[in-house]
């Protein structure tokens, strides 16, 4: 959260103009949408009669009912304390989401049947590939950042060429180039190592830039103090600069980790049996694509949430030395 002011702010969702505007907008949207064919219209049958013939009055009544429910909901949530507000809104959005999936009429038994394999093969491979890639990418990033900041012409040139190249090509193309290109040079490479290599190199390039800017954000005085005490470069970097750069580096790096987790799906194109690959193939035989895609989507999301939680824990840990 931002640093909140001590003066109590007025609650936006309780201001009459806001409530009125919200009500009007919702009403108009749902009138325009023409909900007369939906199950909500069926519920309204006692008021509007046969939905399909209720015309403008029917549309208005449905829109009005939805707008009342919506507005009331928002106004009521406005009374709750902050944490409860957040919880309720999350829950409601989640319910809407589930209702949306409900409309696909997914076959739950099919999902239940395939889920164990989806997890034991797909999730494990996805995690394996991204975890290794993340570690390698972090190592590349530290080295790359130091090289980009060094006064050695070779180091700088190689590092800047590297970041420019791997940030400049689509990841999908890098996956193909490595998998199909390296064998041309005589290095036959399996799909999994090829995928890991592509992901590491690509994310290493992005993270190099993150690490570089993090390192540069540290005050020169820290270098001077370290030098004045006789710390060498490596010691200063490892014990003084990097630990202070980490709080700056972690939020964008967390982003990179989450995005890497999902971009690992790109290695499915070279036949790695990770989550995305299985999601596309398992449902193919019986044309139950949606079941597997949605299951995989949910799994990706849950994995990302785990990473988000880890990230916020680490951020809290580093916030310690900042508070007075």
């Amino acid at each position: 959260m931002l640093y909140p002011d001590t003066v109590e702010a007025e609650i936006l969702v309780h201001k009459p103009w806001f409530v009125a505007t919200m009500f009007a907008i919702v009403l108009l949207i749902f009138m325009a949408l023409n909900m007369s064919g939906t199950s909500f219209a069926e519920l309204m049958r006692p008021v509007i009669g046969e939905p399909s013939t209720s015309g403008l009055y029917g549309r208005f009544a449905i829109g009005f009912a939805i707008a009342v429910i919506f507005t009331l909901n928002v106004v009521l949530i406005g009374f709750a304390p902050l944490r409860l507000q957040i919880g309720i809104v999350w829950l409601e959005l989640l319910l809407l989401f589930i209702a949306f999936f409900e409309t696909f009429h997914l076959s739950l038994p099919f999902i239940r049947e395939k889920l164990p394999f989806l997890i034991s093969q797909g999730v494990v491979t996805t995690l394996y590939v991204s975890a290794i890639s993340i570690v390698i990418a972090s190592v590349i990033a530290v080295a790359g950042a130091v090289a980009k900041l060094s006064s050695n012409g070779f180091a700088y040139a190689i590092a800047s060429f590297y970041t420019s190249f791997f940030r400049g090509l689509p990841l999908l193309m890098q996956v193909y180039l490595i998998y199909l290109g390296l064998p041309q040079l005589g290095f036959v490479i399996n799909a999994v190592p090829a995928g890991i290599l592509a992901l590491s190199l690509c994310y290493g390039a992005y993270m190099t830039e993150i690490f570089r800017s993090g390192i540069q954000s540290i005050d020169r005085g820290q270098w001077e103090a370290s030098r004045s005490m006789g710390f060498g470069f490596a010691l200063t970097m490892r014990r003084i600069i990097l630990p202070q750069a980490l709080p700056v580096i972690i939020p964008p790096t967390g982003n990179q980790f989450i995005s890497m987790l999902k971009d690992s799906s790109l290695v499915s194109v070279i036949g790695v049996w990770e989550l995305m690959f299985l999601a596309r193939t398992l449902g193919q035989k019986t044309f139950q694509h949606m079941e597997m895609l949605i299951s995989a989507a949910m799994i990706y999301w849950m994995l990302s949430i785990c990473l988000e939680l880890i990230q916020s824990r680490i951020e809290r840990h580093y916030a310690r030395s900042k508070v007075r």
Partner: peptide, 29 residues
């Protein structure tokens, strides 16, 4: 390093290491 560790320096803006406790600041060198 040998020379610098024999010459102490105190800066206008202190330049303490903010991620370490006071004690650790003094023990590090």
């Amino acid at each position: 390093a040998a020379v610098r560790s024999n010459v102490g320096m105190v800066f206008q803006h202190f330049n303490l290491f903010p991620h370490m406790t006071v004690l650790m600041n003094c023990m590090a060198g």
